[in-house]
Design a protein around this nucleic acid. Structure first.
Lengths: 235, 235
DNA sequence: ACAAAAGTGTTCTCGTTACACCCATGT
DNA sequence: ACATGGGTGTAACGAGAACACTTTTGT
């Protein structure tokens, strides 16, 4: 098979913006870069595209290497290809954002990569254009979550409605009326009430719910409207 | 400056999904591929990324080469990188979609590239994964247009509200109540009424409007809601 | 008993929808 | 005169927002 002649060939990498939610705060998983230049500075977890893998597969591989997790929600954010974005050598990076249940995250792996969770509002300086990627991911997550029930991916199998609300409030950096919020969420009929309560965060305790996975998948495309006044919130 | 050693280098291309609107139908601008393989088959207009240009610049360049237009609305759709997507040689393609005023399009250029406008519902077989790109672009356009006043980019400087409605109806493959539609559109105050009427499409004639560019830019991020029942329409 | 969070009920408002009707004009 | 789209008026409806109030239970 012939090749296209006379065209330049470039490095292609993937970078992952990994979101987690610890029940209170939304966090980002960052690593300390092992390669020069900028060795020791914080960065997104990434890796070069290998010969026989798709970008999506590469992102999954990178994600698994860092977190030990498979089958994670992963969505392409887009390609970043400014000629000067990597000072070593021109590299096109395809960014993906991932939503993981932070409790599933296998912490021991983090030592290998010097990984750490950072509060979304306390992101340190990042290498290259990773800051732009993070901002893009936040933005895309807001869009998507305003329309699709995507944030359940960040929660453990059992969660309470106040937890869910805290999550949404974190994403949109605002606060909602808890009474309207719970009614709105329940009206989707996506949640199955459990018998037990979570007593950690209040005296009364809040009932646990589980996601109805069947309905979740079936209705994923359906627009929800968890977010009051979406027009005011999305940038 | 050192390089990252031991990593493969790949071809990187851009492909443009070019939308146009002729007043009745939404169309896509396709070219007949000049390179082997699949020479003569229909394809998106594309090109390889050059050493000193960003993907965005490459897309603009490709777009200008085909249409003669600059300053066109262009948005990245994402990267397509399946290992087998191009049988000649592995190529990562970054897809962009463009919205152009079809009347500005310089037709003579089309001969050079054997370009033709195709009705959105009558797209011929396309090479590689271009069909997937087109589907993705349609989808993203629907999303974006449901939230932002983006479709004005497809219209000439002067247009009527019925034309605008036809455009929206084409994008969402449905029909709206014209009375509600015009009120909704006018309520945004994005349009400036002109004195002349377009008499081509009815006896009474419809007033021309111009876009208030200042308000358009200022309110671009604001969510509109041109689309009734958006949840039913977006796939 | 009290504090503190969870959750239910109720009202008001405003945007959406549906549809009757009038308007302007070419034939 | 009448057919054909363009456009205004209006009433009914329903989702969202605001908020008073009750529930539960640890201290």
């Amino acid at each position: 098979m012939s090749r296209y002649s006379g065209q330049i060939h470039l490095l292609v990498a993937v970078d992952c913006i990994i979101f987690g939610f610890d029940g209170t705060d939304i966090k980002l998983l960052l690593v300390q870069r092992g390669l020069k230049p900028e060795k020791g500075k914080w960065s997104l977890m990434g890796g070069f595209l290998q010969p026989r893998e798709s970008p999506e597969q590469a992102a999954s591989r990178v994600l698994k290497k860092l977190t030990g997790l498979e089958g994670v929600y992963l969505e392409q954010l887009g390609a970043f290809g400014d000629p000067a974005r990597d000072p070593v050598e021109r590299t096109i990076s395809i960014a993906y954002f991932a939503l993981i249940d932070i409790h599933q995250y296998e912490k021991q792996l983090s030592y290998e990569y010097h990984a750490e969770w950072f509060h979304l509002k306390k992101i340190p300086d990042l290498i290259f254009d990773h800051r732009k990627m993070v901002d893009g991911a936040k933005r895309q997550l807001r869009y998507k979550a305003a329309l699709h029930p995507i944030l359940f991916e960040l929660l453990p199998p059992r969660f309470t409605i106040p937890q869910l609300q805290t999550l949404y409030e974190g994403i949109y950096d605002t606060s909602f009326d808890n009474r309207n919020f719970s009614r709105k969420v329940l009206s989707t009929e996506l949640l199955i009430k459990q018998k037990e309560k979570d007593k950690a965060s209040s005296k009364k305790g809040a009932f646990y719910y589980k996601l109805d996975k069947r309905k979740y998948k079936a209705n994923f495309q359906a627009f929800l409207n968890f977010i009051p006044n979406p027009d005011k919130l999305l940038l």
